[in-house]
Amino acid sequence: MVARAGRARRTRRRWAGPRGVRARDPRRRRIRACERRVPAQDRAARRRERRRRARHPRARRGADGPHHPESLHGDRRRPGSGAEPRTEDELFASLGKKARYAIKKAARDGITVERVPASDANCAAFFRLLEETAEGRFVLRRADYYRTFWQRFERAGEGQLFFAYRDGELVAGAFAMGLGSKTTYKDGASVRAKTAYGASHALQWEVLRWALERGAVTHDLCGAPPSGQASDTSHPLHGVGQFKTSFAPQIVDYAGAWDLPLSASKFSVWAKIGDRIARRLSLTVQKDPYY
């Protein structure tokens, strides 16, 4: 009886308290391992940034001081170099040479950009542009998702729809949204036939003017190759990156989204089977690739 009680007490001591539980919980060990990797990833990103700045001095110093990029996600640059621009002229002067040339050429060719309301008709026209741009390149959600998104942000005073025209014909569109001192380029599309050079640059210039009027300090163009692969022509986002870095050269890398499986076996089944089934059901039933 005494021996059994002793064993029971030893068992309780072995498992009692948070320290013993944590030491035997494999999920917590994986979480701690992931947390330990984050600082190492941050240091690696900082080293890549130092190497990039060493290769591209212009990104490190501007004519008036340190160069503050002008946007954004995967590509994060601030409007201006040196001091933050206070006028449109200062903002325009802070853009890259290629962007300035394209914007001026678009104006000479009669391309105009307007801020338009997110009416049902304008949302439908913009979605048709998105379909033309996305064909064979990326997957879109349903039209009502985009219409609801654009209209809700516009009603809240945090979003704006932009259209670019040439000879009265819609050739490009964009939707931007803002939150406090930051603005973001959310959606953009243009006609496949590239008969209006500079339309997309002119469109983004109007978005930047809108951001400046709102008092934004940072404008996020979103989406570009990693900084170490910006010159890699085989990267699927190479063309997109070239367009966005024409406004300002800096690309800022982020850690991105990572899965942290709490059950390796269940996650393996989900990744191999569950995710595909859920996506297929969503496409079949809701006509939406995102479940």
Score class of each variant (00 low, 15 high):
L140M: 03
V116M: 11
P117E: 03
I251T: 06
L130I: 05
P236W: 11
Y146P: 02
H56F: 08
A107G: 07
T184S: 02
Y254T: 15
R10K: 09
W270S: 01
E206D: 13
K244E: 07
E169W: 03
N122H: 15
Q151T: 14
A248I: 03
Y145F: 15
A44N: 13
Y145I: 05
Y101C: 10
A264R: 13
T183V: 06
D275Q: 08
V38G: 08
P39G: 10
A172T: 10
P18A: 13
F175N: 10
P261E: 04
D120A: 15
A248T: 08
Y165G: 04
P289R: 09
G65N: 13
A230E: 13
S119I: 03
V285R: 06
G82T: 15
S181W: 12
E132A: 14
Q160T: 08
A121M: 01
V191I: 14
G157T: 00
E90D: 02
R28V: 15
V2K: 14
V240P: 09
V207Q: 13
I277H: 01
A202R: 14
L170V: 08
H235N: 10
A174H: 09
Q250H: 12
R108A: 07
L72Q: 01
V207S: 06
T112E: 15
G239I: 08
Y290G: 00
G6P: 03
V217M: 05
P249L: 12
R28G: 04
A164N: 12
Q229F: 06
I277P: 12
S234P: 00
I277T: 10
T87P: 04
A102D: 09
G228T: 09
A83G: 13
S268C: 14
R58D: 12
K97Q: 15
K244R: 06
R14S: 01
R47D: 13
P225A: 14
A202Y: 05
F92S: 11
H201Y: 10
G62Q: 01
L260T: 02
L95G: 02
T112L: 07
A8V: 05
K97Y: 03
T218S: 08
W270H: 08
